[in-house]
Structures are given as structure tokens and as C-alpha cells.
């Protein structure tokens, strides 16, 4: 009663329109719809992916909290309404397509790492992300070593020397070190239909 037919939200996005906006073919968008349905119904079958469902699909647990999955979720949720609709899911995944240009991947990575969303990647943010990584892994690094890593990174990336990395510096930096964008490509997205015929 009075609902906006939440399940219909799945169908509001025209696959042909999404194909024109992304690196996916219509048949691949249809295949990804199967994955979307699975994710969006894993906790509550409401046709949208909640943060809990996003984490469950990614990490196999909805209880783990992760700074990184939180940021990924926020970036996929372009309407910022707390859920990921099908169109947002497809447009977000498209950045991770092997065919997406490096500049687009770099822009996404910049926004991912700009955790305070101030338009720069600042030293404290990078330190926070390193600490987040250490807390989720068995790696142990002393504070002194972390500071050395930060010094070296900012020496290389912060060409203007103002203590923060702006979008232009970031594009230059990853242009010199494209391996930093390795996790911005999901190899599975190439030839989805042949790799995942069950989708």
C-alpha cells in the first residue's frame, strides 16, 4: 500500500540505455541482472542492494565492517539514497571493465581514496587506509615504517609539495605507476556471457 513497487525498480533501467552508457553489451547487462537479483535479495528481497547485502556479496559476511567496502558502496550509490539500484550497479561496475579507460579508473580510485571527500587525498587519509588494511590482514608495520612509506609516497605523488594529492597529481602519478590501478579492473567482466553462461 502506497509502495512504489520496489521490485519494479529493477526494470526501470532500460538495458539498451545502460549499454549506451557503459562498456557492457545488452546481453551482458541482462546477465548482470541475474547477479544483481541474487545480491539484492540476499538479505531482503526488495530489488535494491543495501550496504549489508553489498558487504555480504563481496566479503561473504555482512558483519565485517570495512572502510573500503563502505567507500565502494558510497561511490556505487550515486544518488546517495543508501541503496544501490540496478542502473547504479551497472554504471559502477562499468568502471571496472577491462575496456574502461585508465583516466576513468584513476578518477574512481581518486574518489575512493579521498575518504573525507575534500577533493584531495591527504596524508592522514592515506594513513587511515593503511591502518584499515593492517587491521584486516596479518601484516604488521610499525608506526615509523608507515611514516617512511607515507613520506616516500608523497615525495613521489605530491609534485606541488603542498602535503596533499590533487586530482591532477593523482592522474600523473598513476600514469607513471599504472599498477596502482590494478584493483580497478575485474577480469571477469571481459566476455561475461562466455565466462558465466549461468548468469
Amino acid at each position: 500500500m502506497g509502495c512504489c513497487c520496489s521490485k519494479e525498480r529493477l526494470h526501470l533501467q532500460d538495458p539498451a540505455l545502460l549499454a549506451s552508457q557503459t562498456y557492457f553489451k545488452i546481453s551482458e547487462i541482462e546477465a548482470l541482472h541475474v547477479l544483481f537479483k541474487k545480491l539484492s535479495s540476499s538479505v531482503v528481497d526488495d530489488g535494491v542492494i543495501s550496504k549489508e547485502e553489498f558487504q555480504l556479496g563481496l566479503l561473504g559476511s555482512s558483519k565485517k565492517r570495512s572502510l573500503f567496502t563502505d567507500r565502494l558502496f558510497q561511490l556505487f550509490d550515486s544518488k546517495r539514497d543508501g541503496v544501490i539500484e540496478f542502473g547504479e550497479f551497472i554504471r559502477g561496475l562499468s568502471v571496472f571493465h577491462p575496456a574502461a579507460p585508465q583516466a576513468q579508473k584513476a578518477d574512481f580510485a581518486f574518489r575512493l581514496y579521498d575518504i573525507c571527500q575534500r577533493g584531495f587525498i591527504e596524508r592522514e587519509e592515506v594513513k587511515e587506509m593503511i591502518c584499515a588494511l593492517l587491521s584486516e590482514s596479518d601484516l604488521v608495520l610499525s608506526n615509523d615504517i608507515i611514516e617512511v612509506v607515507l613520506d616516500k609516497t608523497f615525495e613521489e605523488a605530491d609534485s606541488k609539495g603542498d602535503g596533499k594529492i590533487d586530482p591532477e597529481e593523482w592522474q600523473e602519478f598513476v600514469g607513471r605507476k599504472p599498477s596502482l590501478l590494478r584493483n580497478m579492473t575485474i577480469p571477469y567482466l571481459k566476455d561475461l556471457n562466455t565466462q558465466f553462461p549461468s548468469f
Partner: peptide, 29 residues
Amino acid sequence: NSGSSPAIINAFQLIGMSSCLDLSGFFEK
């Protein structure tokens, strides 16, 4: 681990090691 090594890992290489950033997880059951 050797403090005097000139090949210090880059902070973003380190961060990129996070499995929480690997969206392949969606495709790996």
C-alpha cells in the same frame, strides 16, 4: 622489512592489497 632498502613499498600498493577492494568477490560465489 629492511629499513635501509631503497625499494620502499608505495602506500597505494599497500592499500591495494586489501581484499575488501577486490570486486571480483561478487563473481566468486
